[in-house]
């Protein structure tokens, strides 16, 4: 009985030693194999890459010049806050030698804000967007207009949007160049 007890004890000691050895060998190996991957956020970025506003000739009556802005909205921030893109224009300031006057910003307006198209990233969701706000996207650009919006947890990607614009040129506007500054703002709400 005593011999059997002694043999059992030896077996347990051997087993414990084996476990300890195994742990001692594998623990450093486990530590070496652990990998940490940190993903840092990029930026939110919206810009107009193209605008077609054809040149027009002088007229004594009002003329309407129509064109299309192509907007790209890129949420590479990695956050899930959602976002909005707004646009606002300055007046079209005259430069030339014919004593022209500036064209007010209220003459520059959005007539249609078309639905966005996904370039890459999260699919467009009917409810979460990105989408054109139900009202307020069209109108004069003397005030900021929200043209595209994504709710929280949506819009993680790159999207294109065509925005039809209209510039009302008053009759008698002098020959020359008219320059406006369009502020395109992307915000995380």
């Amino acid at each position: 009985m005593g011999r059997w007890k002694g043999s059992r004890m030896k077996t347990w000691v051997a087993f414990a030693t084996a476990v300890l050895l195994a742990l001692a060998i594998t623990a450093p190996a486990l530590a070496i194999n652990s990998v940490t991957q940190v993903i840092t956020g990029g930026v939110m970025n919206a810009f107009v890459d193209d605008l077609t506003l054809p040149a027009i000739t002088f007229s004594n009556t009002n003329q309407t010049n129509t064109g299309t802005l192509n907007l790209t909205a890129d949420d590479s921030s990695g956050s899930t806050s959602g976002w909005s893109v707004t646009m606002q224009s300055s007046p079209f300031n005259y430069s030339g030698s014919n004593n022209g006057t500036n064209i007010p910003a209220a003459n520059f307006s959005i007539t249609s804000a078309n639905p966005p198209v996904r370039v890459t990233g999260q699919a467009i969701d009917v409810t979460g967007g990105p989408k054109v706000p139900p009202t307020g996207a069209t109108g004069t650009l003397d005030a900021a207009r929200t043209v595209l919006h994504a709710e929280q947890n949506f819009g993680l990607g790159i999207y294109n949007q065509d925005i039809d614009v209209n510039l009302l040129i008053p009759g008698g506007s002098a020959i020359g160049t008219y320059t406006a500054f369009l502020t395109v703002t992307m915000t995380p709400v």
Binding site: D50, T52, L53, N65, G176, T177, T179, L182
Partner: peptide, 9 residues
Amino acid sequence: DSGNAVVKQ
């Protein structure tokens, strides 16, 4: 391509 009504952003 913004013609002679120049738009800068």
